[in-house]
Design a protein around this nucleic acid. Structure first.
Lengths: 342, 342
DNA sequence: TTGTAAGCGTTATCAA
DNA sequence: TTGATAACGCTTACAA
C-alpha cells in the first residue's frame, strides 16, 4: 500500500526551485514561461508523479465545471438516451455531470437542487417537470429545460406541433376513413400538447374525419394493455369495416396496440394503420416495424448543452450580460415510415 | 439580479458574535453547543439566507462524497436500469455520482478515470470491461465492478451459472428434442461465460441432446435480424419437425427470433420454445410475452454500493484496514416463465 | 462550551 | 518572465 501523500504545487515548487505561482502558470498559461523552464517543470511532474487536484482549483477560482442534471426516470428509453447524449457532450464542452434521477416529488427534487447548488454547479439541465420554471429561474443559475414547461427558463423542445402534422399527413396519404389520435390529456403548458394541436389542425385543414381520444392509458404495462384493448373494441364497434389510422402517444403504446391486433388477426389487418412517437427501439423491434415520429435526441441534447454553456460562459466574464428573455429552441421531428402505414 | 456575494461562515460568525469554529460545530456537532446558541445560529442562518458550500468542506476535510461511475452505454436497458438503481442509492448512502458513459476505448476511459480522480472521488463503480481489473486496482481507490472481469477488484455479479442451469432446466421440462444455446464466444474471464457452463453441465447431467452455437450476432439490429434468420434456417434444416428449445443470449435477440418465427408462421409454432435473458422491457412487450432469466438489478446495485461504501468508510478511519482480498458477491437470477415456454 | 490559528491546493493580485 | 502574498470556505488540532 503505497498511499503516499499527494504531490502538490508546493512539492513541485520545492523540487524545481520555482514558486507555486509559476507552477500554476505552467498549467494555465504555459506560454508565459520560457521553454526551458516549461521543460524543467514537465520533468518534475513526471519525476514526482503529480496528479492534478481540481478541488483546490475550484475553491480558488469558483469554477467547478459541474452541470447538474435532473431526470424523471431512466426506465423510459427516451430519458436514458437523452442522458446518454448529454453525457457525450463532455467531449465537446468538458463539463462534468452530477446526475439525480427521478422521484417526481417536488420536495425531493428541491433537495437535489440544494445539494447541487452546494457543489457550486455552474448550470442545470432539467428534464423533470415537477418544479415550476418560475421557481427554477429564481435559483439564479443558468437552467435549460428539455420537453417540459418552460415559461421562465430557456429550453429545447421537439417541434411537437410539426410531429402532429406529420403523423396526420401520413395517415391522410394512406386513405384512411377515420383518423384517430390517442393521447393523455396533457396540459396546454406542456410542449407535448402541441402534438394534439398539429394533429387537429391538419385534419381540419384537409377536412379529414378524425377523433381525439384523450384518456389516461395507465401507469403499468398491464394497465396499458387492458385500456388499449378496450379502445380497440370501441373502434371496431364504432367504425366497423372502416380503415382506421391511429396515431398513438408513443411507441410503447403503439406497440401494445399492434400486438393486440396481431394476436387477434395473426397479422396487421388492412383496416388499420398505426403510427407511434419517439422512434424508440421498440418501434424497430416490434413484430412489424412501426412507423413513428422520431425525436432527434442527439440534436436536442447538443442544443441544450450549447445553450447552457453559452449562458455559463457569459457568467464568467467580468461584466456578464444575463439573458433578458429565456431562449426557446425547437427541433423538428423526423417522420419514419416503416411497415405499419402504407 | 440580486446575485449578492455568498454568505459564509465568517459572515455568520460576525453576525452572531461567535467564531467560525462554532459555526462549523453547529453543523457538524450541534450538541456541543448550548441549545440557546444553537437557536441563535439557526436564526442567523435564516436571516442571512445561508447556503452551504461543500467545496470548502471538501478541501478542508478531503471528503467529497463523490463516487465515479463508468458505464459502457445507456442504450441497453440493462445498463440504464442499473444506473437508475445505483443513482437511487443516494437516498441510503448519500454519495453523489459523477457519471461517464461509454466509449469502450481504453485510452478514453483512462482519461475519464484521471478526471474522476482529480475530483477526489472516494470510490468507483465500473460496469465497463475495457480496462483490466489489475489496472483498476492500481489506482488505489475502492472499486467495485459489476458484471465484468474482476480478478483484482471487488465485484457483484449475477449468478450466471445458475442462470444457465435455470434456462436448461426449463427447456428440459418442456420436453424438447433438442436444446440449443446461442451466445457470443465470451472469454472465460467474463462472468457471462458462466451461463454457458451452467447450460452445458445441466444438459450433460440429464443427458439432454444439446447444441452450443457460439457466434457473433452482430452489432446492429439489422445484423442481428439477418444472422438470426440464418440460424433459424439452419435449425429447420438440421432438426426438421423436432421440438427445439432455444436459450438466447438476451431478450433483444430472443425477441428477434420470436418475431422471425411469428412472421413465418403467424404464431409461435409448437416446435419452438424460447427463453431470453435479462427480463428487460422487451421481454414483456414482445408479441407474445417472452420467458426469460431475470437479473435482479436493484439487488445488484444495492450490493455494489454496500460493498463500496464499506470500503470507503473503512478508509476514513484513523487506521484503515484495507481489504486483503477482493470480495465477490453473487446474486441469483430469477426464472420468469411466460408464454414462449410450456 | 467556545475560540485561535493553521491548514487543505489552487488561483489572483500586485509587485519586481 | 517570475515571485510573494493573500484569498477561497471550511475543518481540525490545540487552547482557554
Amino acid at each position: 500500500m503505497k498511499s503516499k501523500k499527494k504531490v502538490t504545487f508546493a512539492d513541485i515548487a520545492a523540487y524545481t526551485g520555482f514558486s507555486k505561482t509559476t507552477i500554476s502558470r505552467y498549467f494555465n498559461d504555459p506560454d508565459s514561461l520560457t521553454l526551458e523552464n516549461q521543460q524543467k517543470i514537465a520533468d518534475a511532474l513526471v519525476a514526482l508523479d503529480y496528479k492534478e487536484n481540481k478541488v483546490g482549483r475550484i475553491l480558488a477560482s469558483g469554477k467547478t465545471e459541474f452541470v447538474g442534471l435532473i431526470i424523471p426516470n431512466l426506465y423510459l428509453h427516451y430519458y436514458s438516451e437523452m442522458l446518454n447524449q448529454i453525457l457525450a457532450t463532455y467531449e465537446t464542452y468538458g463539463y462534468k455531470f452530477l446526475v439525480f434521477a427521478g422521484s417526481s416529488k417536488a420536495d425531493v427534487e428541491r433537495k437535489y437542487i440544494e445539494e447541487l447548488l452546494a457543489y457550486n454547479i455552474e448550470g442545470m439541465i432539467i428534464l423533470s417537470g415537477t418544479i415550476p420554471s418560475r421557481e427554477l429561474a429564481s435559483y439564479n443559475v443558468p437552467v435549460v429545460g428539455i420537453e417540459r414547461e418552460d415559461r421562465y427558463i430557456s429550453s429545447v423542445n421537439t417541434d411537437n406541433y410539426m410531429g402532429g402534422v406529420q403523423a396526420a399527413s401520413l395517415l391522410r396519404k394512406s386513405d384512411c376513413d377515420i383518423i384517430i389520435h390517442v393521447n393523455a390529456n396533457v396540459p396546454d403548458t406542456s410542449p407535448a400538447s402541441g402534438r394534439i394541436h398539429g394533429f387537429v389542425d391538419t385534419c381540419e385543414e384537409y377536412h379529414l374525419p378524425y377523433e381525439l381520444v384523450l384518456t389516461d392509458l395507465g401507469d403499468t404495462f398491464e394497465e396499458n394493455r387492458e385500456r388499449i384493448t378496450r379502445l380497440v373494441d370501441e373502434f371496431e364497434e364504432k367504425y366497423p369495416g372502416k380503415k382506421k389510422g391511429i396515431f398513438m402517444p408513443n411507441d410503447t403504446h403503439a406497440n401494445v396496440l399492434l400486438n393486440i391486433l396481431f394476436q387477434r388477426y395473426g397479422r396487421l389487418p388492412d383496416t388499420y394503420q398505426i403510427i407511434g412517437f419517439d422512434n424508440s427501439p421498440i418501434s424497430r423491434e416490434a413484430v412489424i416495424p412501426l412507423s413513428t415520429v422520431g425525436q432527434q435526441i442527439p440534436v436536442i441534447a447538443n442544443e441544450a448543452m450549447k445553450l447552457l454553456s453559452e449562458q455559463m460562459e457569459e457568467r464568467k466574464k467580468r461584466r456578464p450580460a444575463p439573458l433578458k428573455e429565456p431562449v426557446h429552441k425547437v427541433i423538428p421531428p423526423i417522420l419514419i415510415r416503416r411497415d405499419t402505414t402504407a
